[in-house]
């Protein structure tokens, strides 16, 4: 069986992946900032190898907290689930920031799920599109799926197995004026880690030329 040690990236690979992921979340943050008209602060990306159950805890520090999430599966030189998550009690505020104050609350509520799905679609595509452009490859994607529940439920929504080992890349974001926190996470099954590693090494090879 594969252990986390066997999957570890060396320092150069980790550094390159953090840098590329940083560029991707930078694009995603820029897209989000334009949509909600607020400055978006990002944390430093974190990379770890862990189980889906532990990944859920790592993301929210509270496995019971109810959150909204939008996920998309991307397939190309590697496969990954990209997920955007934010607290349930802030979701309507995010939609209002996107659509504006003119719409009555009933209509806004009716559109909440659809609006959040589109926000997720734009942010996750900004991230994965940047990775594709940096790696010089092409990714196809599933349609965005909306989830509501705990982080454990959302992370296991696609695969249903809490013990699955995954590579977790994540970054926390905060809308500065509105004090809304969220997370963008990127989960790779272990079978995809080698594909990612190859992409990183090609990227580093191109830089070194």
């Amino acid at each position: 069986m594969l252990s986390p040690d066997m999957l570890e990236l060396d320092d150069m690979e980790r550094d390159a992946l953090t840098e590329v992921f940083n560029i991707g979340v930078g694009q995603a943050a820029s897209a989000m900032s334009q949509m909600v008209n607020d400055r978006v602060e990002l944390s430093v990306p974190s990379i770890s190898f862990t189980s889906r159950a532990a990944a859920a805890l790592e993301l929210t520090h509270d496995a019971g907290q109810r959150i909204c999430g939008v996920s998309q599966r991307f397939q190309g030189s590697f496969e990954a689930d990209a997920i955007l998550m934010f607290p349930e009690n802030k979701s309507l505020e995010i939609v209002r920031l996107m659509i504006g104050d003119d719409m009555p609350i009933e209509e806004l509520t009716a559109m909440e799920q659809e609006a959040l799905t589109e926000i997720g679609n734009i942010i996750l595509n900004a991230l994965i599109g940047t990775l594709a452009n940096v790696f010089g490859s092409e990714f196809s994607s599933s349609l965005p799926a909306f989830h509501f529940g705990t982080s454990s439920e959302i992370l296991q929504a696609e695969r249903k197995n809490a013990d699955d080992l995954v590579m977790l890349l994540h970054v926390d974001f905060k809308l500065e004026t509105h004090q809304i926190n969220g997370y963008v996470a990127f989960l790779l099954d272990v079978s995809s880690v080698q594909g990612l590693r190859d992409s990183i090494n090609r990227f580093m090879g191109n830089i070194a030329r």
């Binding site: 694009q27 897209a31 334009q34 949509m35 679609n121 734009i122 595509n125 900004a126 994965i128 599109g129 940047t130 594709a132 452009n133 092409e138 990714f139 994607s141």
Partner: peptide
């Protein structure tokens, strides 16, 4: 929302303008 260079190229080949969301 798909900002990939490959998508931009497909648009160009078909004579479409390519504008990215948001």
């Amino acid at each position: 929302a798909n900002i990939q260079e490959s998508s931009r190229q497909k648009a160009q080949q078909l004579g479409l303008a390519f504008v990215t969301k948001p």
